[in-house]
Amino acid sequence: MNYFFLILLVIVFLIVLSIVWSTLKTGISPMMSSSKACKTMLAEIDNHEKGLLIDLGSGWGTLVIAAAQKHPNKQVIGYELSWLPWLVSKILKYSLRLDNLTLYRKDFKSAELSAASTLVCYLFPEGMVALQEKLAHEVFNQVTIVSNTFALPSCQPTRVIRLRDFYQTPIYVYHWQPK
Protein backbone atom coordinates (compact mmCIF):
# COMPACT_ATOMS: atom_id res chain seq x y z
CA MET A 1 0.00 0.00 0.00
CA ASN A 2 2.81 2.44 0.84
CA TYR A 3 4.54 1.73 -2.49
CA PHE A 4 1.34 2.46 -4.38
CA PHE A 5 0.93 5.76 -2.52
CA LEU A 6 4.57 6.67 -3.12
CA ILE A 7 4.33 5.91 -6.86
CA LEU A 8 1.12 7.93 -7.10
CA LEU A 9 2.76 10.81 -5.25
CA VAL A 10 5.76 10.75 -7.62
CA ILE A 11 3.45 10.74 -10.67
CA VAL A 12 1.45 13.69 -9.34
CA PHE A 13 4.69 15.53 -8.54
CA LEU A 14 6.02 14.95 -12.08
CA ILE A 15 2.75 16.16 -13.61
CA VAL A 16 2.78 19.33 -11.51
CA LEU A 17 6.47 19.86 -12.25
CA SER A 18 5.82 19.47 -15.99
CA ILE A 19 3.05 22.06 -15.96
CA VAL A 20 5.08 24.49 -13.81
CA TRP A 21 8.12 24.08 -16.11
CA SER A 22 6.11 24.75 -19.28
CA THR A 23 4.37 27.70 -17.59
CA LEU A 24 7.73 29.24 -16.71
CA LYS A 25 9.06 28.56 -20.21
CA THR A 26 6.09 29.98 -22.12
CA GLY A 27 4.85 32.61 -19.67
CA ILE A 28 1.36 31.12 -19.40
CA SER A 29 -0.21 27.93 -18.08
CA PRO A 30 -2.15 25.71 -20.49
CA MET A 31 -5.72 27.00 -20.45
CA MET A 32 -8.79 25.47 -22.03
CA SER A 33 -11.07 27.58 -24.16
CA SER A 34 -14.59 27.63 -22.74
CA SER A 35 -17.31 25.81 -24.65
CA LYS A 36 -18.83 29.19 -25.65
CA ALA A 37 -15.46 30.39 -26.94
CA CYS A 38 -14.88 27.14 -28.86
CA LYS A 39 -18.31 27.29 -30.45
CA THR A 40 -17.86 30.94 -31.46
CA MET A 41 -14.34 30.41 -32.80
CA LEU A 42 -15.42 27.36 -34.82
CA ALA A 43 -18.26 29.37 -36.33
CA GLU A 44 -15.70 31.87 -37.65
CA ILE A 45 -13.71 29.22 -39.54
CA ASP A 46 -14.63 29.22 -43.22
CA ASN A 47 -15.33 25.76 -44.64
CA HIS A 48 -14.37 26.89 -48.12
CA GLU A 49 -10.88 28.13 -47.34
CA LYS A 50 -8.16 25.90 -48.74
CA GLY A 51 -5.04 25.25 -46.71
CA LEU A 52 -4.22 24.26 -43.19
CA LEU A 53 -6.00 25.17 -40.00
CA ILE A 54 -3.36 25.66 -37.28
CA ASP A 55 -3.94 26.00 -33.54
CA LEU A 56 -0.97 27.94 -32.15
CA GLY A 57 -1.24 26.68 -28.59
CA SER A 58 -3.48 23.65 -28.66
CA GLY A 59 -3.26 22.97 -24.91
CA TRP A 60 -5.51 20.14 -23.76
CA GLY A 61 -7.01 19.80 -27.25
CA THR A 62 -10.38 21.41 -26.59
CA LEU A 63 -10.44 23.59 -29.72
CA VAL A 64 -8.09 21.69 -32.05
CA ILE A 65 -10.02 18.42 -31.63
CA ALA A 66 -13.37 20.16 -32.15
CA ALA A 67 -11.94 21.81 -35.30
CA ALA A 68 -10.69 18.47 -36.66
CA GLN A 69 -14.09 16.90 -35.99
CA LYS A 70 -16.03 19.76 -37.57
CA HIS A 71 -13.76 19.92 -40.63
CA PRO A 72 -12.91 16.27 -41.45
CA ASN A 73 -11.72 17.20 -44.97
CA LYS A 74 -9.36 19.92 -43.72
CA GLN A 75 -5.85 19.24 -42.43
CA VAL A 76 -5.61 20.50 -38.84
CA ILE A 77 -2.35 21.04 -36.94
CA GLY A 78 -1.87 21.84 -33.26
CA TYR A 79 1.29 23.11 -31.56
CA GLU A 80 1.72 22.73 -27.81
CA LEU A 81 4.84 23.02 -25.65
CA SER A 82 3.50 21.64 -22.39
CA TRP A 83 4.06 17.89 -22.19
CA LEU A 84 0.95 16.74 -20.29
CA PRO A 85 -1.67 18.70 -22.26
CA TRP A 86 0.03 17.58 -25.50
CA LEU A 87 -0.11 13.94 -24.34
CA VAL A 88 -3.80 14.24 -23.39
CA SER A 89 -4.50 15.70 -26.85
CA LYS A 90 -2.59 12.87 -28.55
CA ILE A 91 -4.58 10.26 -26.62
CA LEU A 92 -7.85 11.96 -27.57
CA LYS A 93 -6.76 12.25 -31.22
CA TYR A 94 -6.09 8.52 -31.47
CA SER A 95 -9.14 7.47 -29.47
CA LEU A 96 -11.35 9.62 -31.73
CA ARG A 97 -9.49 8.44 -34.87
CA LEU A 98 -8.86 11.94 -36.19
CA ASP A 99 -6.61 11.23 -39.16
CA ASN A 100 -6.79 14.86 -40.31
CA LEU A 101 -5.20 16.08 -37.05
CA THR A 102 -1.46 16.34 -36.45
CA LEU A 103 -0.16 17.41 -33.04
CA TYR A 104 3.35 18.69 -32.46
CA ARG A 105 5.05 19.28 -29.14
CA LYS A 106 6.78 22.46 -30.16
CA ASP A 107 6.56 26.22 -30.05
CA PHE A 108 4.56 27.84 -32.85
CA LYS A 109 7.32 30.45 -33.12
CA SER A 110 9.56 27.84 -34.74
CA ALA A 111 6.79 26.40 -36.93
CA GLU A 112 6.10 27.01 -40.60
CA LEU A 113 2.81 28.92 -40.88
CA SER A 114 2.88 30.00 -44.54
CA ALA A 115 0.62 27.15 -45.75
CA ALA A 116 -2.12 28.04 -43.26
CA SER A 117 -5.40 29.53 -44.34
CA THR A 118 -6.65 29.79 -40.75
CA LEU A 119 -4.85 30.33 -37.45
CA VAL A 120 -6.66 29.94 -34.13
CA CYS A 121 -5.19 30.82 -30.78
CA TYR A 122 -5.70 31.47 -27.10
CA LEU A 123 -2.30 32.91 -26.29
CA PHE A 124 -1.32 35.80 -24.02
CA PRO A 125 -0.15 39.37 -24.74
CA GLU A 126 3.53 38.48 -25.34
CA GLY A 127 2.46 35.52 -27.49
CA MET A 128 0.32 37.83 -29.62
CA VAL A 129 3.31 40.16 -30.10
CA ALA A 130 5.41 37.18 -31.20
CA LEU A 131 2.63 36.06 -33.57
CA GLN A 132 2.36 39.50 -35.14
CA GLU A 133 6.13 39.64 -35.70
CA LYS A 134 6.10 36.14 -37.21
CA LEU A 135 3.23 37.05 -39.52
CA ALA A 136 4.98 40.23 -40.68
CA HIS A 137 8.24 38.44 -41.50
CA GLU A 138 7.17 34.99 -42.65
CA VAL A 139 3.57 34.84 -43.87
CA PHE A 140 3.01 36.25 -47.35
CA ASN A 141 -0.51 35.01 -48.01
CA GLN A 142 -3.93 35.97 -46.71
CA VAL A 143 -4.76 34.25 -43.42
CA THR A 144 -7.83 34.31 -41.21
CA ILE A 145 -6.87 34.60 -37.54
CA VAL A 146 -9.36 33.85 -34.76
CA SER A 147 -8.07 34.70 -31.28
CA ASN A 148 -9.66 34.04 -27.91
CA THR A 149 -9.34 36.94 -25.43
CA PHE A 150 -6.13 38.58 -26.72
CA ALA A 151 -5.71 40.93 -29.69
CA LEU A 152 -2.82 41.44 -32.08
CA PRO A 153 -1.17 44.59 -30.68
CA SER A 154 -1.18 46.85 -33.74
CA CYS A 155 -3.71 45.27 -36.08
CA GLN A 156 -7.32 46.26 -36.47
CA PRO A 157 -9.61 43.22 -36.19
CA THR A 158 -12.20 42.64 -38.90
CA ARG A 159 -14.64 41.79 -36.16
CA VAL A 160 -14.81 41.50 -32.38
CA ILE A 161 -17.38 39.17 -30.89
CA ARG A 162 -18.20 39.54 -27.19
CA LEU A 163 -19.29 36.33 -25.53
CA ARG A 164 -22.22 36.41 -23.18
CA ASP A 165 -20.22 35.27 -20.21
CA PHE A 166 -19.08 36.79 -16.93
CA TYR A 167 -16.03 38.46 -18.51
CA GLN A 168 -17.64 39.48 -21.81
CA THR A 169 -14.73 37.56 -23.38
CA PRO A 170 -13.69 39.00 -26.74
CA ILE A 171 -13.07 36.81 -29.77
CA TYR A 172 -10.99 38.70 -32.32
CA VAL A 173 -11.24 37.89 -36.02
CA TYR A 174 -8.60 39.16 -38.44
CA HIS A 175 -8.14 38.78 -42.17
CA TRP A 176 -4.36 39.16 -42.36
CA GLN A 177 -3.12 40.74 -45.57
CA PRO A 178 0.63 40.73 -46.17
CA LYS A 179 2.13 44.15 -46.71
Rank of each mutant, 00 (worst) to 15 (best):
S154H: 14
K179W: 05
G27P: 09
Y167Q: 07
A68G: 10
F150N: 08
I28R: 10
S89A: 13
M32P: 13
A67E: 05
V129P: 01
N148W: 09
G27M: 07
Y172D: 09
V12Q: 03
R159L: 11
S110I: 07
L56I: 12
N47S: 15
E80Q: 02
Y3I: 14
L14V: 00
P125C: 07
Q142L: 05
S35N: 14
L135V: 09
L24Q: 07
W86Y: 12
N2Y: 08
Q132N: 12
V143M: 05
Q69F: 01
S18H: 02
V12K: 02
K39N: 15
A111W: 08
R164A: 12
K25L: 05
F166K: 13
Q156A: 15
S147I: 02
Q177H: 08
L101T: 04
L96T: 03
H175V: 11
A136K: 15
G27Q: 12
A151G: 07
S82W: 00
Y174G: 11
P170H: 08
D46S: 15
K106G: 09
L52M: 14
V10T: 13
E44A: 07
L135K: 13
A66L: 08
S95D: 04
C155W: 03
K93I: 04
M32N: 12
H71K: 05
I54H: 04
W176P: 09
L6F: 15
I19H: 00
K70W: 02
S29Y: 01
I65E: 09
P30M: 06
S117Q: 11
F124I: 05
W21M: 10
S58L: 10
T26S: 15
I54A: 11
Y174N: 10
P157G: 12
I11W: 01
G27A: 10
A111P: 02
T149I: 11
T118A: 06
E44T: 03
L98C: 09
M31K: 14
K39P: 07
D165N: 14
I11F: 09
Y172N: 07
E126T: 08
W176M: 10
S33Q: 13
I145T: 09
H71P: 00
A115P: 01
W83G: 00
L6T: 10
P125R: 06
T149A: 12
K179M: 04
S154G: 04
F124L: 10
G57C: 14
E133Y: 04
L9C: 06
T149W: 04
S22I: 00
N100P: 05
Q69I: 07
S58P: 11
Y3W: 10
L42D: 07
